[in-house]
Nucleic acid binder design. Structure first.
Length: 681
DNA sequence: AAAAAAT
């Protein structure tokens, strides 16, 4: 991978790779917003942007031997001292926050550790794990205990027995791919292109057929292409990036560690990790979820996944990383922290994944993300592969895509829930004062099968409603941002495993969480943003199953009435007449019906490859998945679409952009004349 | 209004 990289200047190397305790050899910290693109803080004195990856080919980089040899110092330098089998208590405690208990769940696989180092021929991780030896992948022995933990027996933990079935319904999910030379999708988990070891892990996890996202993403990523995918969590996107990344990793082995002084000697006294894959996601729950998946598919392989996030003891995370870290799943803040501490270097990154990118931006992570991607030692765009996932594709995400991706394939995956009709949506007119009793009616009649997720708008309401339900002898619990991390995890776990099949939640649980078996979502309070509604109901009907979504609607929600009607129609749901009449009453916004401007419902997921259209037309560049939009992929505007189109993001907002034709189907309803859509904000 | 995140 280092081939063809230019040499950086030496001072650059030194400042970047200086042992952590050393004097701060770098220039004063430059805040991200004052920084030019590609000019990281360590690029003193106007060094041209050779990219941080220049740091690779330092003279002292003693690569040249085989990978394993060069890599060895990265891994468990302490060797046997750490190796142990006494960590197993984790097994009982593990459920959620691994760090809370001192050691991440990977422990069990770590076994004796005695095989480390030795003659330097192998990058061994301990007797339980696989190795990369003499240019070959040598999977570790089976570990029944770990296997049970990772893949589950499906007995007492319903959350594990249920990993994505009913695949036939997946096929309803439309996918549109665009870009230059889009590789043909695959239809099976087979070799080629996938690695055999990965396939065996996929089998262990009982995945049978790739989901639509995976069908496309696997060949795209394995073909070395960058990817921008608009997809939600339930679509199987985690596998969509993990499968190809791990498959490649199994076949090509570890990268050489830089900064290594030959003979397996450590250069510098800090142990620093050099992951080859980095996955960024916005929340702790999400990174944990991704990490759990990564552990499954990395089972018995040489690849060691790690997870870091805030709010947990950093010491144990540091120790975990020291033992080897090939695939790192992280929240941005904590990762920056670790980079600042000099414990993680990104020079070896081959794969960068930004998951739920829109949400990360919503949460104000852009500075950290830009710092990580552009302001540290991450290889340049050309020298890494970058995959971005986002439920929506608004302007700021387009900018990120423009800056972080190269000649990417754009993938648009239909809404899992609403569009594919997996979810039956019911809207009931309920005044605030009647909500409790109506809720009780529903809970009584709905029976006890499956899990019920109830969304409310405020934390106080979450508490009081769950108290109320408990008083009414319903097994309920609550999750919201004022509860401690531990309480949240516990609530979620109780919900997952069915001991508390009713969960009252605020928006904290609206997005991203993948909880199987949620059969009913109740919007006790409707959100003001229809996108949030879509995400909420998307907690049910997941993995191709069906679900029911009930919403309590009254005049206080008339702000979303227009979007709600559009959404119901698009999803071929019944539209109650009171909605229409309330819509006719007018919502007081003027302009187009709901006053939502262009950022209508279409933004939820529906997206198009902006590169195809000359300008971004609508201010936010979002579009709908409307009607016939899929098949056609009408106007790619010739092959020059990308190169030429890219700079146009600054785009006009003035309406003209619909021209592309994919709106023809007209299901979008009202692309009416409004001008600046973004005025809505 | 709520949520999230490095401390």
């Amino acid at each position: 991978m280092a081939d063809g990289l230019q040499m950086g200047n030496l001072s650059l190397q030194d400042s970047q790779h200086a042992p952590q305790g050393g004097p701060p050899g770098r220039a004063a910290y430059i805040p991200p917003h004052l920084r030019g693109r590609n000019v990281g803080p360590s690029m003193d004195g106007g060094a041209p942007p050779p990219g941080p990856s220049a740091g690779f080919s330092a003279p002292r980089d003693a690569r040249g031997g085989d990978w394993a040899n060069a890599n060895a110092p990265n891994f468990s330098p302490r060797g046997p001292a750490n190796g142990n089998t006494s960590w197993n208590p984790m097994e009982k405690l593990r459920p959620f926050d691994p760090y809370a208990y001192g050691y991440p769940g990977h422990a069990g696989s770590y076994g004796g550790g005695g095989s480390y180092g030795g003659g330097g021929g192998a990058a061994a991780r301990g007797s339980g794990d696989g190795q990369w030896r003499d240019g070959k992948h040598v999977p570790g022995p089976a570990n029944p205990r770990l296997e049970r933990e990772l893949f589950g027996l499906g007995q007492d933990d319903p959350s594990k027995q249920h990993t994505g079935i009913n695949f036939s319904n997946y096929d309803d999910i439309p996918v549109e791919a665009s870009g230059q030379d889009v590789p043909e999708p695959v239809n099976t988990f087979t070799n080629p292109p996938l690695d055999d070891h990965l396939i065996s892990n996929i089998k262990l996890a009982s995945y049978v057929t790739p989901t639509p996202v995976q069908k496309y993403s696997i060949p795209i990523v394995m073909g070395g292409r960058d990817l921008m995918a608009c997809a939600q969590t339930g679509s199987g996107k985690t596998g969509g990036f993990l499968f190809p990344i791990l498959s490649q990793a199994f076949q090509t082995g570890p990268s050489a560690a830089p900064q290594q002084a030959g003979g397996g000697q450590f250069y510098g006294r800090q142990r620093k990790a050099y992951p080859t894959s980095l996955i960024l996601a916005p929340t702790r729950e999400l990174v944990s979820q991704i990490y759990d998946e990564a552990r499954k598919f990395a089972y018995r392989s040489w690849v060691r996944p790690c997870v870091v996030y805030g709010g947990a003891d950093i010491g144990s995370q540091l120790r975990q990383i020291e033992r080897g870290c090939d695939l790192l799943v992280a929240t941005p803040g904590r990762l920056v922290d670790l980079i600042e501490r000099g414990r993680i270097s990104l020079v070896n990154i081959k794969y960068l994944v930004l998951d739920e990118a829109d949400r990360m931006l919503d949460m104000g992570f852009e500075p950290q993300i830009r710092r990580i991607v552009e302001g540290e030692d991450m290889p340049r765009v050309e020298d890494r592969q970058t995959l971005m996932f986002s439920a929506t594709f608004p302007r700021d995400i387009q900018m990120l895509a423009r800056d972080f991706l190269k000649d990417y394939v754009f993938l648009s995956v239909g809404r899992v829930g609403s569009t594919s009709e997996n979810i039956t949506q019911k809207i009931e007119y309920v005044e605030d004062a009647d909500k409790r009793s109506v809720l009780l009616d529903i809970l009584h009649t709905h029976g006890t099968t499956g899990l019920t997720l109830i969304f409310v708008e405020t934390k106080r309401m979450a508490d009081s409603l769950s108290d109320f339900l408990i008083n009414q002898r319903f097994p309920a619990t609550a999750i919201h941002g004022d509860r401690t991390q531990r309480e949240r995890e516990r609530a979620l776990e109780m919900f997952r495993n069915g001991r508390c099949p009713i969960l009252v939640a605020t928006a904290v649980a609206a997005r991203g969480l993948d909880i199987p078996n949620v059969t009913h979502v109740i919007n006790y309070d409707l959100p003001t943003d229809i996108d949030d509604y879509v995400h909420r109901i998307g907690r049910t009907g997941r993995a191709g199953n069906t679900g029911i979504a009930t919403a309590f609607f009254n005049r206080g929600n008339r702000g979303v009435v227009r979007d709600m009607i559009d959404l119901l129609k698009e999803a071929h749901q019944e539209v109650p007449s009171f909605l229409e009449s309330i819509a006719r009453e007018g919502s007081g916004y003027g302009g187009r019906g709901g006053g939502r401007g262009g950022r209508g419902r279409g933004s939820s997921n529906a997206t198009r490859d902006v590169r195809r259209f000359g300008g971004s037309g609508m201010g936010s560049g979002q579009s709908s998945f409307g009607g016939g939009g899929y098949g056609g992929a009408p106007s790619y505007g010739g092959s020059g679409g990308y190169g030429g189109g890219a700079p146009s993001y600054g785009g006009s907002g003035s309406g003209a952009g619909y021209g592309g034709g994919s709106y023809g189907g007209g299901s979008y309803g009202n692309p009416s004349g409004a001008t600046g859509p973004s005025s809505w904000w």
